[in-house]
Design a protein around this nucleic acid. Structure first.
Lengths: 132, 132
DNA sequence: CTGTATCCGCATTGATACTG
DNA sequence: CAGTATCAATGCGGATACAG
């Protein structure tokens, strides 16, 4: 066919490779329990920092801040500061965050549906290991 | 586990509370990047230990073993030992694993669809932080 | 080839204190 | 209330060695 642009200098899949590595990085960032729990709870409604802390439960101040920053950086969470005193900061999901919430919800549903399977499997596994 | 005990003494939602804590635990177990990557790749086909290691890439021997055990314990992955020499061990997803694979696939799709959003958001975030 | 065990560095985490 | 910084400790994760 017609004249191709000279791409010989770069591997043809340079963009794909970069996208893959980026995708992997995003995957590593977001696929962790705190991020998932935050997304799940924030999906229900906008929350303040301490509300979120209470809802999630078992997360330290630092980890919550850290994960919120990460989610904000990746555009999953929007942070709104109300210049009042004392300060009030609201967090809510962006469009991308809402979209990922669908995935997290799916995982919640999965957990509920397979709770029984999992418990049974754990018993089997324990029996196979420690048992006779 | 045979005879049913009197349950009137217990709060009606004792089971629910237990289920919640268990669900949370499962969530913490499974919602990590290695588990997700393993599930994603195992979903394509049955694989041996070292195939999986190569496919996932960047995972150490130890982490792969550890996560495979965890997934096996929770009944997401089935482990088949072929008594040959040298040993051959195949791993494949169970029904529960396949079901969760749907979720993981959803996340992969999400990553692809929002790659642009995320890159843009990161630039904005960086500019807002370090910039003027 | 697969799996377990051990050692060890380094990152993650939590507690605490302090600023706005 | 929200956020940052600092420090200490725990535990993750990788490398290695060895067993089946």
């Amino acid at each position: 066919m017609g004249t191709r642009k000279e791409i010989s200098e770069l591997p043809p899949d340079a963009d794909l490779a970069r996208a893959d590595s980026l995708a992997r990085e995003i995957f590593s960032d977001v696929a962790n329990k705190w991020a998932f729990l935050i997304i799940e709870f924030l999906g229900q409604r906008t929350m303040r920092f301490s509300e979120l802390r209470d809802e999630v439960g078992g997360i330290s101040h630092k980890m919550l801040t850290q994960n919120l920053r990460m989610l904000e950086r990746n555009g999953l969470v929007e942070r709104t500061v109300h210049p009042t005193v004392p300060p009030r900061v609201d967090y809510n999901l962006t469009e991308a965050g809402e979209a990922l919430r669908g995935v997290v919800d799916g995982m919640c549903g999965w957990t509920q549906r397979y709770l029984g399977h999992i418990e049974a499997s754990r018993r089997r596994f324990k029996a196979a290991q420690g048992g006779p």
